[in-house]
């Protein structure tokens, strides 16, 4: 359920430029965006439109050049590197296009990583990882290595990993682009079912039109600008 009164992300006039001189690329040109808690916001647009740059800035893994960006009232600009890292570790979950599961760790160990980064003991972290893996339907694959899992299963492990430490914001970069249509659909159903919650915001970057139906709102980007924001839920 979207909570219109609580802003998870508020970006105003965001700018980001890569390179300099003649090779300069304006990835973000004054982007304004608001994401509410409980909302699944999709950023869509052609390649090079600035979607990934925008979620990188929002997630605090990339510094912006100008503008404002607050995540649950916190601005990464006012944090030092250590504070940023700590904030990300506690409050932000990531789901990547290529899953980014560490190949030599089992599914449960991969899921346990964010908890261990936050200081939880390995045994406790892997126990909790097994619990959440059963929630995403992988209770029988907790000891499997990523190479032993299908693409859909790997993405489910990645979703479990992004959720385990209870982050307030989850950013997903093309979560279905490496999956076939049916598997992608299932992954998105799972995301909506287990990951989207009243106290959590979701931002999904995609250009896969087949999963647009799972969004609460869709922000279209082009050439570093948000060109339109479309509501897919009547209550928004």
């Amino acid at each position: 359920m979207v909570n219109k009164d609580t802003l998870a992300v508020r970006c105003t006039g965001l700018t980001k430029t890569y390179g300099s001189g003649s090779s300069q690329v304006h990835a973000l040109c004054g982007v304004n965006l608001e994401v509410h808690t409980g909302e699944l916001m999709m950023l869509v647009g052609p390649s090079g439109s600035g979607k990934t740059t925008l979620i990188s800035v929002i997630a605090g893994v990339l510094d912006r050049d100008g503008g404002e960006c607050q995540v649950f009232g916190h601005d990464f600009k006012h944090m030092n590197s250590r504070e940023k890292t700590q904030y990300r570790g506690k409050n932000i979950g990531f789901v990547f296009q290529m899953f980014n599961l560490i190949p030599s760790l089992t599914a449960a160990e991969n899921v346990a990583v964010p908890l261990m980064i936050n200081g939880v003991k390995r045994r406790e972290a892997t126990d909790r990882a097994r619990d959440i893996l059963s929630r995403v339907g992988l209770s029988d694959r907790t000891f499997s290595l990523p190479a032993e899992l299908s693409g859909g299963q790997q993405q489910r492990v990645a979703i479990a990993r992004a959720m385990l430490h209870g982050p307030k914001l989850i950013v997903c970069d093309e979560p279905t682009s490496a999956l076939d249509h049916e598997t992608g659909h299932k992954v998105m159903e799972l995301l909506r079912e287990v990951a989207v919650g009243a106290d959590r915001a979701f931002i999904v970057v995609t250009h896969d039109a087949r999963i647009f139906e799972f969004a609460d709102r869709i922000a279209k980007m082009d050439d570093g600008h948000i060109t339109s924001v479309e509501n897919l839920r009547t209550d928004l």
Binding site: Q86, Y87, F94
Partner: peptide, 16 residues
């Protein structure tokens, strides 16, 4: 070879 995973750990909050 593992730089992507180190990057992932860094993004997920692992300190330097």
């Amino acid at each position: 070879d593992n730089i992507r995973y180190f990057g992932t750990l860094k993004a997920m909050g692992a300190s330097d």
